[in-house]
Simulated scan of single mutants.
Amino acid sequence: MAEMRDRISDLERQRQRWLGSQLEQREAVDPETHLELRLANDRLQSANVELNREVQELRRMLETTAEELAASRQAHREDIAALRGSEVVPLRPPVQESG
């Protein structure tokens, strides 16, 4: 029995050393503080869900835009290749140097 009491005393000293000032705080939770924290937590969780939805939508839009850009670039390459095979007429006549 004395050995168990010594062990309990040792554990209490270790607890005091590791937890320090935390042990001096009240053991009961203030209901108002708890309610405020609960409301803040609910608000933050709701905001987090909304932000995650927004991020998913933005990622979807980015993927769609990237696919459209790739298709546009491919079409542009095909147009350039087709024009190189035919006679290209400039929109403006070349400027002649006076000499």
Rank of each mutant, 00 (worst) to 15 (best):
Q16N: 08
W18P: 00
G20M: 00
Q22L: 13
L23A: 09
L23T: 13
L23V: 09
E24Q: 12
E24T: 08
E24M: 12
R26K: 12
R26A: 14
V29T: 08
V29N: 12
V29H: 12
V29L: 14
P31K: 01
P31V: 00
H34Q: 10
H34F: 07
L35R: 15
E36V: 11
E36A: 14
E36C: 08
L39Y: 01
A40C: 11
N41I: 02
D42E: 12
D42P: 01
R43L: 09
R43F: 10
Q45M: 05
S46T: 01
A47P: 00
A47T: 00
A47K: 03
N48C: 02
V49Q: 04
E50K: 01
E50T: 02
N52T: 14
R53V: 02
R53I: 01
R53C: 03
E54R: 03
E54H: 04
E54I: 00
E54T: 03
V55G: 04
Q56G: 15
Q56P: 09
E57M: 09
L58S: 07
L58G: 02
R59S: 00
R60K: 12
L62W: 07
L62Y: 10
E63K: 02
E63Y: 00
E63M: 05
T65Y: 10
T65Q: 14
T65D: 09
A66W: 05
E68A: 03
E68T: 05
L69G: 13
A70G: 09
A70C: 10
A70D: 04
A70Q: 06
A70R: 03
A71V: 04
A71M: 12
A71H: 09
S72Y: 06
R73N: 11
R73G: 06
Q74R: 13
A75E: 15
A75H: 15
R77F: 15
R77G: 11
R77M: 11
E78I: 07
I80K: 06
A81H: 03
L83S: 10
L83I: 02
R84C: 07
G85S: 11
G85V: 04
G85D: 14
E87R: 07
E87V: 04
V88A: 01
V88M: 01
V88C: 02
V89N: 15
L91T: 11
L91N: 12
L91V: 03
L91M: 12
